[in-house]
């Protein structure tokens, strides 16, 4: 009986493990056909614009010849779409994500965690000391070499 339970438990763990695995794997895939289909009109629009260098959306909208085509349904670019949701790769959730001394202040004010703040400060100090030591040694060696020639 304990053997059966162990076997059942093992099977269950394998099943759950593979289910979790496939769920995570799915996260890093997407339906390419759905994307291609959804953007197919825009592929045609790109071909049209490429074939008519210099043409703008205003000119397309004022053209009788193009009225009724999907080209006139295109939207203009607005600043919020450029800077907010990232058509150009700018993630909007990055507000306040900053480094260095300001980063220490961020940890202090937001995290309110003395230990974390101390670590951030020590990191900043250690980095500065390392660079100062490196440059001192570097220029001492350069100086010594030049001195030996005179």
């Amino acid at each position: 009986m304990p053997m059966k339970k162990a076997l059942l438990f093992t099977c269950m763990m394998i099943f759950l493990g593979s289910a979790a695995w496939s769920q995570d794997s799915d996260l890093f895939s997407y339906d390419r056909d759905a994307v291609t289909t959804a953007l197919s009109d825009l592929d045609e629009a790109e071909s049209y614009v490429t074939g008519h260098p210099g043409i703008t959306l205003s000119e397309i909208r004022s053209s009788d010849e193009l009225s009724g085509t999907h080209l006139v349904k295109l939207s203009p670019v607005d600043g919020s779409s450029l800077a907010g949701e990232p058509p150009l790769g700018i993630p909007s959730f990055w507000w306040g994500c900053i480094f260095g001394v300001v980063g220490i202040a961020l940890v202090y004010f937001i995290a309110e965690d003395a230990e974390e703040t101390k670590k951030a400060l020590m990191g900043c100090v250690a980095w500065t000391v390392a660079w100062v030591v490196f440059y001192l040694v570097y220029w001492l060696v350069v100086g010594a070499t030049l001195w030996s020639y005179y």
């Binding site: 825009l42 790109e46 614009v49 959306l57 349904k73 295109l74 939207s75 203009p76 670019v77 058509p87």
Partner: peptide, 28 residues
């Protein structure tokens, strides 16, 4: 809605200005 934006981009990591010169939908 659907958007089509075409143009050129320029970025210098020291200057930290991102410049987009759009040719479509408008010259901006």
């Amino acid at each position: 809605t659907s958007q089509l934006v075409m143009g050129k981009f320029y970025y210098d990591r020291n200057i930290k200005k991102i410049v987009y010169i759009n040719s479509f939908p408008e010259k901006e």
